[in-house]
Design a protein around this nucleic acid. Structure first.
Lengths: 354, 354
DNA sequence: TGTAAAAATGTAAACGTTTACATAATTAAC
DNA sequence: GTTAATTATGTAAACGTTTACATTTTTACA
């Protein structure tokens, strides 16, 4: 005899979850009471609360975040929009990890918009995120975004800028001490004996880039080494620029003995060129890069690098956002984290003890 | 005389956007008509449509996606949940980039849950994403997730698995030919003269891992090389495992002359150990890894690797999801992409021409 | 010109919550 | 044992859309 098929599968299809109303009915209370239990707003009488809790467990009820978001005013929608310039850059990945960890711990969800260093796309994502009713924006702002981000603040969104601030706009910023980080890196090169030190920088319109250039110059100045503009070059903060600009540096008649690169993609690009040409590091050309990576020791030789903790930046960002939402009038702060120079073998040791 | 301050700034704070109703009022039509114009569902009379469009432009109206999502049934909420095992792994980053690019082009937003290879956290994210009313899930399922993911399918979500499928559950899968990829890598090692080839594999509970082991074994078999279980070892698919397992391999009395690593994090870990010990690649130990990276040429020597296109996986995934939403009854498919062996300098050349 | 059919638009309910306000139950004060 | 104050709960509107259904306008055809 044939077994009858259970139709569970198809009958379950497209069912929406348990609603608050169902919980209310089953517990014999009003929807308001259930809502109050969930949000533990007003005190609900012990007995009632227990009964409602039980039904919630029993039915496996979970509030629909979309309905919550629609109903509540900004600041309670528990959603954060995250605008990332380049998700291929491990530094931003670290930031994302930090943000994610602490955001979900506070019951915030995050929506990521990776705009690939493209201004149009960043604008596009801002519009999308607005229509998703986010509470807050986390932005690493790109040149040309000043007005857009300013608008966000004026419209009442909580906004935190990471990695760099915004000219003429007051807001919360979490970044690292780029000047000091660059200074330390270049000073290290000088101390191990280099005097002809090049710098490959990133997008000149980003404050971070300029701060690192300043740190580079300050270190040279301190040791009385003249700055040669021919070997301070920059374009974009990407891998290809690293490949090409390092080639340009190595092609000049009097090439540098060391290169300081302004971020990890530039570093990797420069390494590609150096290896392709069969140059020995650090003997023929030394290199120190801004941004450490968890696999810097997998490079050959292991890379000396300026470490900035993206994870920590993420953590603090969420903290700031949380405060801002709780108190929109709190004064703006700018948090500047220290960097750390991780010395490995890509710079040479000549005068290290000097 | 004192200028009066404009209060625009503060009065704009916390304002919500322009609503459909406002558009309707200003255009002198009903909300239904505006909605129809937006969704171009029913034909709206030319003149009316033009008028509405004009008001939309004028007011800068954008539909509130949250309200849309609340109202519509599943499949129209234009939100995709993405469960990523490890955002630090560049392969998944490529997938994310592919997904993102094509998702936003189709007006889908994505929410990423990076569960860091943690089963509990994967479950946690699934619950969150459900309460965000996503249309669909993209999952690289972890051991122990079978039932959970199965449930998603049964509940009517569109689900696509990436990188690996699920035992006993029918669904759409996008992956690469792991067997062939591994086979090619190992065959290459054999052709350049290696016979004692080790394999560092990943998490044994993930199908991908097993397929790569099979490919490894098949290549050895083809050339009559006996399989030595002592040099086929695995643990997790992370950097630290690569560091430690490669050390173990190099410590045995009769160490391998070549290592085939099962993913990019293991490769980087192994490289760290090899460089730390000052071993020359490929003379003292050769290495070929699964997963190419955009900076494989920045390694020294440049890495020979099996390339799988994460970006392409992402593209196809969105395509499949789109089809599934349009036609929930479409038969399940499993898409298997070819890999490509990128030969660089980490394996040696001895018998390459043979 | 009148009527039926087709096309365009409007009305109002619904999605799942939260919350101001109203009401009911309890406690406190006399 | 009243009444007032307090506490607990309920009622219903609102958030911004979409959509089934109802109504109005237009078109087609006799």
């Amino acid at each position: 005899m044939l077994q009858s098929f259970t139709l569970n599968k198809s009958s379950m299809a497209n069912q929406k979850g348990v609603s608050l109303k169902e919980v209310a009915d089953k517990a014999g209370v009003s929807t308001a009471t259930v809502s109050r239990v969930i949000n533990s707003k007003t005190v609900v009488k012990g007995e009632t609360e227990l009964r409602v809790q039980k039904v919630i467990k029993q039915l496996g009820y979970r509030p629909n975040r979309v309905a919550q978001r629609l109903r509540t005013t900004r600041g309670a929608s528990k959603l954060i929009g995250l605008l990332i310039p380049d998700i291929q850059n491990p530094f931003y990945v670290d930031i994302i990890r930090g943000i994610e960890q602490y955001a979900y711990a506070r019951n915030f969800a995050i929506v990521i918009g990776n705009f690939s260093q493209n201004e149009e796309r960043q604008k596009f994502y801002i519009e999308i995120l607005k229509s998703e009713s986010v509470d807050a924006f986390i932005v690493a702002p790109f040149p040309g975004m000043n007005d857009y981000v300013k608008e966000l603040v004026e419209e009442g969104y909580a906004v935190v800028c990471i990695d760099r601030g915004l000219a003429n706009v007051d807001l919360d910023v979490v970044k690292v001490d780029n000047f000091q980080g660059a200074f330390n890196a270049v000073e290290h090169l000088i101390k191990v004996g280099h005097t002809r030190i090049a710098h490959i920088s990133g997008n000149a319109l980003i404050p971070t880039t300029m701060e690192r250039i300043s740190g580079y110059e300050a270190a040279l100045n301190k040791y009385g080494i003249p700055i040669d503009r021919e070997i301070v070059i920059g374009r974009n903060s990407d891998h290809q620029s690293g490949v090409e600009l390092s080639a340009r540096l190595l092609d000049i008649p009097n090439p540098p003995s060391a290169i300081f690169t302004s971020n990890n993609l530039l570093t990797l690009g420069a390494l590609e060129t150096i290896h392709t040409r069969g140059l020995k590091i650090p003997e023929q050309v030394a290199i120190v890069g801004f941004d450490d990576m968890y696999w810097s020791m997998s490079l050959n030789p292991p890379l000396t690098a300026v470490r900035q903790s993206g994870f920590e930046i993420g953590r603090i960002t969420i903290e700031l956002l949380h405060q801002r939402i709780a108190d929109p009038a709190r004064p703006y702060v700018s948090i500047v984290l220290k960097t750390e120079l991780i010395v490995r073998n890509s710079c040479g040791y000549k005068l290290k003890m000097a």
